[in-house]
């Protein structure tokens, strides 16, 4: 059967406009064709982005504090911001899941043997709790707790945090890639890509936090170590994205339909402007100029670096949303 792509795109796009009271194929005509997933929306994308970026952020903070690159105040503020971001992303997720999940959220931990959602819930719950524990000594009046920075307890705690942060960054891609039903997600490239983007999100957020806590001087100190890594990660993520999309474009038919929806269909502006230009090309150019020493250290340079960081973060969110929205099921027969 020949594929009528414009008609398919129009139908799949129109599927998104309606907001039925039923999640599933309720509003679709009973036709044997490709179906785009409609049950996970921007709130799930925000959860994957927010919790992933927050995990990347805490990973870097712990690491850079150990390497003595990051100021204590910046690390502390960053940890609070990261915790807030993780909690906000969980609020978005549970708002999407509805009233049953809100009051029975602990049920989600019942099936870790086979369910990635269950494993992810466990990881994110432990990570949030660990962060709260790590941050407790910074609360006025609790400074005497025996796991502050540079204590044995504190170092052990932070090492566990590193492990769980890595686990969550991998999980945000593994959860999607574990399902064979949607070919566009069912690839080992997705966890690699999402892990890279989680690290990148953390790296992009850190200079913004440093700018607030320590001004230009702090950004300059931090940037000497950070920018070359940011540039490398931006290029690496660009390559991973290229491999992912190219791999899917040469894959089975539902994956090819997803690629078309992303690069030529309803998500094309998000992909090309949001993910490619704002999230990759623009930051790569700015950070490359900074690493090459062309930009100097004036106010304009700082503004440009803020734009690069913000663009990277926005691109990271848009990527998660676009990947969710172009998930296509093959015909069930």
């Amino acid at each position: 059967m020949a594929l009528d792509l414009p008609a398919l795109m129009e139908r799949l796009w129109s599927d998104w406009r309606g907001k039925p009271k039923v999640k599933g194929l309720a509003d679709a005509k009973f036709i044997l064709d490709y179906q785009v997933q409609r049950h996970w929306d921007w709130r799930v994308a925000f959860y994957l982005f927010g919790a992933g970026t927050s995990a990347g952020l805490i990973f870097l903070e712990v690491l850079l504090r150990w390497l003595d690159v990051l100021e204590k105040t910046t690390a502390l503020v960053g940890m609070w911001i990261g915790l807030t971001l993780a909690l906000l992303s969980l609020v978005a997720l549970f708002d999407h899941l509805g009233p049953r999940a809100r009051w029975r959220f602990w049920y989600a931990i019942r099936n870790p043997r086979t369910s990635w959602i269950s494993r992810g819930f466990f990881i994110v719950a432990v990570l949030v709790l660990l962060r709260i524990v790590v941050l407790l000594p910074s609360v006025p009046g609790l400074g005497g707790l025996p796991w502050g920075e540079d204590t044995v307890g504190g170092n052990v705690l932070r090492a566990v945090v590193l492990l769980f942060a890595l686990g969550f960054m991998a999980y945000s891609g593994l959860v999607l890639s574990s399902w064979a039903a949607i070919a566009f997600w069912n690839t080992p490239m997705l966890p690699v890509l999402y892990m890279g983007y989680s690290f990148l999100g953390g790296m992009a957020a850190l200079p913004l936090i440093a700018l607030v806590t320590g001004g230009s001087a702090e950004v300059e100190t931090l940037g000497g170590t950070l920018w070359p890594w940011v540039l490398g990660l931006l290029l690496g993520n660009g390559l991973a994205l290229l491999l992912y999309v190219w791999g899917m474009a040469t894959g089975i038919r539902p994956a090819r339909v997803s690629v078309r929806l992303m690069v030529r269909g309803p998500q094309r502006w998000n992909f090309w402007v949001g993910v490619a230009v704002l999230g990759l090309v623009l930051p790569i150019v700015i950070v490359a100029l900074e690493v090459g020493g062309v930009m100097g250290s004036d106010a304009v340079a700082n503004v440009l670096l803020v734009i690069a960081s913000a663009g990277t973060l926005v691109g990271g969110y848009i990527l998660r949303e676009a990947v969710l929205k172009v998930g296509v099921y093959g015909p069930p027969v």
């Binding site: 999640k23 599933g24 194929l25 179906q35 997933q37 049950h39 996970w40 899941l97 509805g98 049953r100 999940a101 029975r104 959220f105 049920y107 989600a108 019942r110 369910s115 959602i117 999607l176 574990s178 399902w179 064979a180 039903a181 949607i182 998930g327 099921y329 093959g330 069930p332």
Partner: peptide, 15 residues
């Protein structure tokens, strides 16, 4: 026992 996570919908190849 269901909390409406919709994981089943994502996992089922028959939607």
């Amino acid at each position: 026992a269901c909390i409406g996570s919709m994981a089943c919908m994502s996992a089922c190849p028959y939607y």
